[in-house]
Nucleic acid binder design. Structure first.
Lengths: 146, 146
DNA sequence: GAATAAATGAAAAAGGCTTGCATATAGATT
DNA sequence: AATCTATATGCAAGCCTTTTTCATTTATTC
């Protein structure tokens, strides 16, 4: 899910302006990098890929901010490490992943269950603003033979 | 999802016997406690509820072992802390949760999407042994007014 | 009851993430 | 373009969850 850097910056400036949030070099670099990634990446990976041009702490702080602004989405692949992906206007950031338990290969999944399920669950329990986290895990074709 | 301790122990003995795994007091206590819990609990909580009768490390080790034996299932509620639940023969350990983002209330969800979705995804990408992790997040009725 | 393989406890460390504080910098104001 | 002020950064330290190491204890086998 690659994105145009141009687009990101427009979004960024528009979205941040009002909130007393600044456009800084680390934030631009992080967004730029996320735009080039195919799959969610960890803060550590971002830090390394940026050749440590900014502090790891700044990566964490930037990601947290970008997440709160709905520019970035957090994923959990079950290894105690958060991964982040740029929110893509196409799917509104809503898609899932299929992860190989063995080699950790990641495949993007566009399909999802019918949204009726979610609204039914929300209604049944009186919850509002219901979202979900869904990831699939299995063995990829290469790892099945092992 | 309470369970009979009796049942667990039978299962436990049967399952562990073959694998050179021993039935120890900490493991019995942990399983016993999990059988009484309504929702997934953290290792720390287990440790506390057992009045620290065994070391926290032992709790972690036991849970890992029990998980590998499919007696216990790990859940992730998005707060960097693993939670564990006894696998219930009724639903084969397969159910999900609805968690309040605000107060962290947990509701068990029995519904799930059609299993065709999963098999379709598995087939499409050549994956085997595909499972999924699905949790719902929202605002419970009490927290909506806040 | 002795042998032995596995489990435990205690201390330490690893790993992800956050916080406090002094310094630097973006963006507003002039 | 110089100044100002609030926000962001870097660095060090710390927190929290989880893992590792290793000596000791304990469950199971014979």
């Amino acid at each position: 899910m690659a994105h145009s850097h141009q687009h990101d910056l427009i979004d960024l400036r528009a979205k941040l302006r009002g909130k007393d949030h600044r456009i800084t070099k680390p934030r631009e670099e992080i967004l730029d990098l996320l735009g080039k990634e195919e799959h969610p990446v960890t803060a550590k990976t971002i830090h390394e890929k940026l050749s440590e041009s900014c502090d790891l702490v700044t990566v964490y702080r930037s990601l947290k901010m970008l997440e709160s602004m709905d520019l970035v989405k957090r994923f959990d692949f079950g290894d105690n490490t958060a991964r982040f992906e740029l929110i893509c206007p196409d799917d509104n950031g809503h898609h899932h992943h299929l992860i190989c338990k063995e080699c950790r290969t990641v495949v993007e999944i566009d399909e999802c269950f019918d949204s009726n399920l979610e609204s039914r669950i929300a209604k049944k329990h009186g919850f509002a603003e219901v979202t979900h986290q869904l990831e699939f895990f299995g063995l990829c074709s290469s790892c099945q033979t092992t």
